[in-house]
Nucleic acid binder design. Structure first.
Length: 117
DNA sequence: ACAGTGACAACAT
DNA sequence: TATGTTGCCACTG
């Protein structure tokens, strides 16, 4: 399953850093569109074995503007994901600006392109 | 096999 | 600056 590549990548994000969907997409070199990266996380089970919300820091993945995309459209097992994500980010020391966005200049995981997978 | 369904991004008004 | 449009592609039933 291609989604698992995304999960593996997300698992490598250091605490206190974030990545954007587009960056992950580019890292996977066309295997997956930015949108598909989002779908992968959307499909991430809350607790179901190898890849779940316990060992995949999905909250460190945000959109190109540094914002949270979950939009409250969540499924039954992930209701208020947007708020949860903000909380988790703050817990890791990531501060959000007035618009509730992450400051990419500060928290973006720039070494990402140097890491291999 | 087929259609519906999405946590996005880049570009064009 | 703010919307609209288009390309995107794996997963599920």
């Amino acid at each position: 399953m291609v989604y698992e590549r995304v999960y593996e990548l997300v698992r490598l994000i250091p605490k206190g850093k974030v990545l954007t969907y587009g960056m992950i997409s580019r890292k996977l070199e066309g295997r997956l569109s930015a949108q598909a990266v989002g779908w992968a996380l959307r499909a991430l089970p809350s607790k179901d074995g190898l890849y779940d919300s316990d060992n995949v820091p999905w909250h460190r993945v945000i959109n190109a503007s540094g914002g949270i995309s979950t939009t409250g459209k969540a499924t039954s097992d992930n209701a208020d994901t947007g708020e949860v994500q903000k909380k988790l980010l703050r817990k890791e020391g990531i501060k959000l600006n007035e618009e509730g966005k992450v400051d990419l200049d500060v928290y973006l995981w720039t070494d990402f392109y140097g890491c291999d997978l």
